[in-house]
Structures are given as C-alpha cells and as structure tokens.
Nucleic acid binder design. Sequence first.
DNA 1: AAGTGGTCTAGACCACGTT
DNA 2: ACGTGGTCTAGACCACTTT
Lengths: 239, 239
Amino acid sequence: MKANNHVPVYVTIFSELRDRIVNGSLGPGEMLPSENELCAKYRASRETIRKGLKQLEQAGLIYSSPRRGYFVNTPQHNKFTLSFSQDIGNGEVRFKDIRIIRPTAEIQEALNIPSNRKVIAFYRGNYKGERQIGLEIKYVPYDRGLPTIEDEINFAVFPEAADAKATSFSYYTELNIQAVTASGEILSMLDCSPEDPLLLLKRTYITQSGEHIGYSKQYLIPPYGELHGVSGYVQKNTH
Amino acid sequence: MKANNHVPVYVTIFSELRDRIVNGSLGPGEMLPSENELCAKYRASRETIRKGLKQLEQAGLIYSSPRRGYFVNTPQHNKFTLSFSQDIGNGEVRFKDIRIIRPTAEIQEALNIPSNRKVIAFYRGNYKGERQIGLEIKYVPYDRGLPTIEDEINFAVFPEAADAKATSFSYYTELNIQAVTASGEILSMLDCSPEDPLLLLKRTYITQSGEHIGYSKQYLIPPYGELHGVSGYVQKNTH
DNA sequence: AAGTGGTCTAGACCACGTT
DNA sequence: ACGTGGTCTAGACCACTTT
C-alpha cells in the first residue's frame, strides 16, 4: 500500500513508530511488534519494514536482538555530538612561530615517541577580527627524512587545510577538554590575564594504522571559546 | 558468491571499499563504481550491494547523489562525539540544597519563561570518594499545580535517575561548555580556590514539542572534570 | 537513449531463542 | 516446532541526469 504524498512507505513506518516512542506509548525496554506483524499491518514486504526499523535503530531509538525482537532503547544523555562555535571554526588563523624542540613527557606520551625524538612545534593564533580568541600549538614528530618543511606543514600539521585528496580519512582525532589558566610563555602569546580561565582542547591525531601523527593544544579565551553540543534524539524537520 | 568465514557479503563490500577510502586509493570527491558495476564485481544482487554502500554512508565515508552516483566524503574534524569521564558519569551524587527562587535573566532565557515565574533550584555535588569533583544546579519551572516535590524530583529534575519508562525519549539536551572561575556562593559550595579554573557545562533539557523543561549548570574541578571525544572515522573491531 | 540511484516485492535459507 | 531477526536474490517501476 503506497503512502499518500510520495512519502516512502518505510518513512511512514519510521515516523509512526518514532512518534509512539517519543510520546511514550512505547517505553524503554518494550518490545516492538515483530517484522511479520508489521508486514501485515502496513501491507508491505519484509524488506521495506526492515528499512523503517533500521532507521529507528540508527537514530538510536531502538535496538534489535536477533531471534528475540526489537526493543526500545533507554535514552543516553551523557553522549553528545559536539561542534565548535562559528568563531573558532570559521575564524581567522595567523601563524605565530615554529620551533624544533625536545618533547616534554606529555608530548612523548601523546605522540608515543622516545625522549630523543625531536618534535616540530607550530604556533598559531585564532582571531576574530583583531581580537585574539585562542592559541593553538601543534606538535609533529621530526623524522623520516623530512621531505621539506612545506610538506610537513601541508600534510602532517594542518591536514584540514591541505589538499583533501591526499589526506582523506587516513586519520581520526581524539579530544580532551579541560579548564586551565595560562602562565609563562603561553600567557605571553595570549591576549589575557593570568587569572582568566581558559578552555584547553588537547587533540591527538591518529592514523587508521594506529600511528600518532600529531598532537595539539588549543587554548580558547572566553566568551569566544565555547563549545556546543546536543544529546538524545533531536527532532529534525524533513530535509 | 559467499564470503569465507560466515562474513556477510555486504560486510565484505563495506570493508573493501572502506579500506580503499581510508588508504587513499579512493580520494575525497571521487565517484565510486556504480551499483550495477559492483553487482557484477561481487556477483551479488543490487540490494546486497546497496546494503554495503549504506554502511559506508552511515559511517560518514561516502554520500549518494541520486541519479549521479556515490562519492567519497571530505572528512570532518570539527564534529566530535563526546562523553563524560568515568569519574563524573559513574561517580557519586549527593544532595546539597533545594530552593525556590526568582529566575535570573540567564535562567529566564534558558527556560523561556517570564520573570514572574518562579523556579526550583536543586543543588547536587559530584563526588569521587570523599573528594568533591563538581557541583550541579538544576533549575525547573515551578508551576502547573506542582504534583508533589517528590514527583518533580523524579520526573523533571533527575529524569536520568528516575523511572526510565516514564521519561522515554521525550526530551533531548543542548550543551554548552565554558571555562570559568567560581565566586561567592558557588565557590563556597565547591571544594576549590577562587583562582581555580573550572569547566562549566550548561545544559538545557528540551522536549520534542519544544518546551524547555530544565536548565542545569554543572561546575567541574580539574583534573576530574575532563571531557573526552572523538572525531572522524574511528576504526572499530568487528564486535 | 542509456545509466543512475530510490523504492518495493515475494519469495528463500539460515541460526538460534522460546515454548 | 515455531517464531524471530539476518542475509540474499532476481526481478520490477520510477524519476531523473548524463551523453
């Protein structure tokens, strides 16, 4: 049976079950009707029903337990999808300094390297107009022939800005968020006072083969240095 | 053609294409072979091929453009899936105080209420053993007959701890992360100094109908108050 | 005109949980 | 023994893009 306005059948199934879960008439832990029952109810083939159920599963609303049935999930509100505020993500970046240093214990651990392996440190400032809103230091192992500084910059240090075709999905990022104050050299490179609380984002760049190709510390000054996220099932308008 | 060790064909398709994308032999923006070509290559039916491609799409590696083809995505590293550290998520929570207050401008805006609408404020401490690692204040509109304080606590203030069957997916959470220092009353309820930088998590609880049912401010003390996240495509072992 | 992805069907076999 | 979800097939029609 076709739905009315060119709405695919599986979307109808998804929507109706989603509504029942969202409004509570299907509560967490409850079992959904079996695929065959839904086939009968919607007069659709099993694959079509499964398509709708798959969407619910991917939205995090249900899970399937093979040979038992589908069940409503218990909502998770301690996991968030986080994105950077526009100011940081789209703001201006200015080069500040570049150094070759001995790794601190922190950097050794983050990059998984011995103490005698030197590291290149890149200093960049985040700006919004003339106002500095952050400072980012990226550390990259200094090694393997070192093609040229330029190549290192393009492909290892700032992969997000480099030729996307070359970097691809070859790495992912681990993120750690802390609140800190700045001191010493860091403070002098930031436009703030010693008592100002800052967000510190530590990121480790890891290839799919497990190699740690970079480590960065980014200091963000309030009120620009804010992060935003959402958790749970956010209602989306049909795109 | 069946795969070797009971590995579904669509998983094989997913894995092989994923590897080609991850190792760069299929770069961002490149078009994948068409479904029909993949059908021929893997000697599988079109729906099976589509299943594998769907997985790649949901992993964020590719996207499909109807009537044109499938294309490799450009990786996004400014979106993170974030979760709380174990200490916070699994730590102990102790009740501290409960008050009925006039909403500040901040709370009015967060809860979307007028200034004459009173608010219940719940104060809770996060502990790890005897060490306090955080303070959370939840604000809930004081209204609609007020069933009993207990009900408010169970179903509006601490839904994550209440009967899951009653709360369901009826709300989602918006999160904001800042770095701050504590002062005045907040400071006195926290086990830290005025100059200690703290993480401040502001959360707004929103029902699917758009109603703002709660607002909370959680202060976290380093080094326990840390957040962790990942971005990009993280290799997972087949569970 | 040929090719593409989007939707859908009506079957099939399997492994396993429940009764 | 029966029901369940997991996998898979070989078709079909559609709307649209590309050539």
